[in-house]
Amino acid sequence: MTLNDVWFLLIAVLWTGYFLLEGFDFGVGILLPILSRSESERRVLLNTIGPVWDGNEVWLLVAGGATFAAFPEWYASLFSGFYLPLLIILVALIVRGVAFEYRGKVDSDRWRRNWDRAIFVGSLVPALLWGVAFGNIVRGVALDSGHHYVGGLFALLNPYALLGGLTTLLLFVTHGAVFLALKTTGDIRYFARDLTKRIGVVTLVVAGGFLLWTQLSRGDAVTAATALVAAAALVGALLANWREREGWAFLATAGTIVAATATLFLALYPNVLPSTLDPVYSLTVTNASSTPYTLKIMTWVAVAFTPVVLLYQGWSYWVFRRRIGVQHIPQATPTPQPAPAPAGQR
């Protein structure tokens, strides 16, 4: 195994970690207007991810930075060809982050409702478009001999990629519902568990269809195994949720996302961006990579700093591991109103 292969594997791990952790963040944001009926319940939902959502987004930054440094040709062709979809994702993530920070700045129901809508849209759009993007990466795009994307925007909206987008959307919503059932008490917990029972079956059908399509078009024995693991884990999550074992259900949905992402990267390898015009024009782990010296330096940096990041993030999850409910949300103190002036002084 060369350093090119090692860094392809590391980038796959980074994207897997991002989908695993940010996946339930997106799910909670999408479920915000569905599972909450009052301001206290909305604050409960937001507080389940409040301490960790920004740390989860670091995985995306590192994955993008690692792609830029290890496979600059891949990065250049991907971000130039997918410019508009990636720009939309970036804007959605920025609006979502601002909404988390500014939602409580003004004591106004209208103000909070507007930022809640921003959280919903800022969670739904990336959850959908990441699947569309990776569907196109695995399927291949129109790359010419200079590794330039020569297709249009609508070429990216093909049936396979759209099914991939629907798959990630449903997987993240299911993952988020299971996370809420694990992290909350009271009505929200029961609502989230009931929603998982209903949406989980739809997710199983859609995700199963997408993985089957991937297997038939680009798969082999290894991808068949990981796809079966993903399907089995999702079935296990639904069974665990039905038996009210939220911890096992969350581990199972996490396993589903890990196995499904592994299936996509295994189906992609040794390409990093296939060309639908001519296989010779495809970007691979060899012709898209940086120099061996660059990859060597990156490897030493990753070995030094990755354990520190993992330990810190694991510690933060441990600190905020307990369930929360509306009883933990402090009630707003009414603003004192001035006493009315006597009738003679009006």
Rank of each mutant, 00 (worst) to 15 (best):
K296D: 13
G81R: 01
G146Q: 05
T261H: 08
Y190S: 14
G325Q: 05
P85A: 11
Y190F: 14
L10N: 09
D278A: 10
R323V: 12
P340W: 05
T168K: 04
L204T: 11
L9N: 03
A232Y: 06
K183S: 02
T299S: 13
L157F: 15
Y102M: 08
L234C: 09
T261L: 04
A230L: 07
F320T: 11
A341Q: 13
L195V: 14
V13T: 10
A161S: 14
G81M: 03
R323Q: 15
L311F: 08
L35M: 00
L86Q: 01
V150H: 02
V28F: 10
L156C: 03
L204V: 08
W300T: 04
V272Q: 04
Y269M: 02
G151C: 07
L204F: 15
F154T: 13
L238W: 09
G23N: 05
D54N: 10
I297S: 06
G23R: 00
V308C: 09
R103A: 09
L204I: 09
P336R: 12
R346D: 14
R245V: 07
R245G: 01
V98Q: 06
S275T: 06
K197D: 10
V106R: 13
F26N: 02
T291A: 15
E244Y: 11
A224E: 07
A232P: 03
W7F: 02
L35T: 00
L170K: 08
